[in-house]
Design a protein around this nucleic acid. Structure first.
Lengths: 296, 296
DNA sequence: GCTAGCATTCTCTGGAAATGAATACTTGAG
DNA sequence: CTCAAGTATTCATTTCCAGAGAATGCTAGC
């Protein structure tokens, strides 16, 4: 059972046919047929059901497929690991939530770039859920997301601690006065798209306050959201640091929350793997050395 | 980079020489030399440092080795997974702590064997630490251990909840009276060998009680331990169920503890893998169906 | 019944892997 | 200092297998 056999097996499984798999692998039909047959003979079971329109996996094939994929991924990673001489260089794809990117990352990235100029870093912003998926599938090397993240393939360190605050155009001293000053169904919630943990938090908060069906307005950008709040469109839930550094800080007012709603940890997550690329290891060590950033 | 190349690479790394590796792989020196050279050419780096007495890994080799081992293990597992037709049969190696084996397992194993007679089950007892290692390295398919177990490669379910009690020959109503009734340095602690979680608990308890350096006596068997307690040799920490079902139950007395010391969960742990052998899956489902066993 | 798309079978060939013998190097013992 | 024992490497040779290409057989849909 060689790796190349498993790769052809996976190709047939993916394309659903030997002809198509052969095309994808830049080889000939007959060849693929042979390899599959040999693999089936070695294992002692049929891996595919043959029918006129292609091939579908049998039970044994379905069980084998994840192994084939895993091993192929490992072999790619192994090559990189062996070639990685320890110098942090080359591309490094990092993801981040919008809010973290706005306030926390400039300092981190600048210092990282100063220490490791050979790494060409790219930053992408998205929601926590999207980022976790991207890290898992390998399109990102690491990402800043909101805890908790519970996946066996992922691990991470606490990068920052944030205090979430409610922001409004009018001034309110407490949740009670906010409640008194708005409609029965609650104020409009200005949120990022689904998958954002802050949105989830705000929805929980609204549910606790008895506004389960308050109006929502999805914004795509941080500045847009703060601007809309300043314009009196509704309320939003954002880290205090983000709000205070905004240009519009003077036009909005901040309502602090109980710790259960306010406290969030920003984690830097990455895949568990047998060897971290030097660029990633450098980034993590750079992050750790800036521990002063972790506000209490 | 084929699997067979990685296997030969791992063999050379393990044996420390091409000649020895060739012997282990049932092939000739020249062959191994060629494969290693080809592998090094493909990767673009030397994997070994050659010296007169053999070969040692370079940095690149050290980084590659875990991948080679992992992929070899995966390929073995893949073969089993593909061949596993879903019928629970064949060997199943289970480990357990002595106490769990004595009280909880007889019922579980009997019912399992009734439902899946084709599985030939073997049971081995050891300490939590030893069992976790054995499961990780594959010599056991699963094991009953004390929580918490925190390892990314392991997962498990809660199988039983136990109440740990202190047992003594003389009757004591409370920890205070035990303290009053024994020497300044504390009573002798009867414990299993290092690696046993109950021993660890008892040592913590003793430290809390101000007996950090109380005498210890290591016993190898459960019956021996209970016997020694009955004979007035010292105190032990064991699950209540174990003590109550002992033949010597009438000759020892039980001292209940605060939940922080008393509560333990017995987990059934196993490796995370892409496919669980049917025999193991059957065991787990059998365990889950006996949920009534999980006392509150 | 015909055709398009598919898998299978067959033969042939090139190249890679295994073999076995010969070579070169190092080290430790006599 | 020489020899023996161990090591890795090189080379010529054989063996064997994966890939190419053509032919065949199968099924579904028109």
């Amino acid at each position: 059972m060689e790796l190349s056999d498993l790769v052809t097996f996976a190709a047939v499984a993916r394309t659903g046919g030997i002809t198509r798999a052969a095309e994808a692998l830049n080889t000939v039909q007959s060849n693929v047929t042979q390899r599959i047959k040999a693999l089936e003979a070695e294992i002692g079971t049929a891996l595919f059901e043959r029918h006129s329109r292609g091939m579908t996996l049998t039970g044994a094939g379905r069980r084998l497929l994840p192994y084939a994929q895993r091993m192929a991924a490992l072999s790619r990673e192994a090559l990189l690991a062996a070639r990685d001489d320890g110098d942090a260089k080359g591309p490094l794809a990092i993801g981040s939530m919008e809010t973290t990117a706005a306030v926390r990352l400039p300092a981190v990235l600048a210092s990282f770039h100063r220490r490791f100029p050979a790494v060409s870093l790219t930053l992408r912003t998205a929601t926590t859920a999207e980022l976790a998926t991207a890290v898992l599938e390998g399109s990102l090397d690491g990402a800043f997301v909101t805890s908790p993240i519970d996946h066996a393939e992922l691990t991470g360190i606490t990068a920052f601690r944030e205090e979430l605050v409610l922001i409004t155009a009018q001034r309110f001293d407490s949740l009670a006065s906010l409640r008194a000053g708005t409609a029965e169904s609650g104020p409009t919630a200005l949120v990022f798209r689904v998958g954002c943990t802050y949105r989830h938090r705000l929805e929980n908060l609204f549910a606790t306050l008895g506004w389960p069906s308050a109006a929502r307005c999805e914004l795509g950008t941080l500045d847009g959201m703060i601007g809309c709040v300043a314009a009196g469109m509704g309320v939003a839930l954002l880290p205090r640091t983000v709000v205070e550094r905004s240009e519009l800080a003077s036009e909005i007012s901040i309502l602090a929350l109980e710790p259960q709603f306010a406290r969030v940890e920003t984690l830097f997550i990455h895949r568990r793997s047998l060897h971290h690329p030097s660029a990633l290891a450098a980034f993590i060590s750079s992050l750790e050395s800036e521990e002063s950033e972790i506000a209490a």
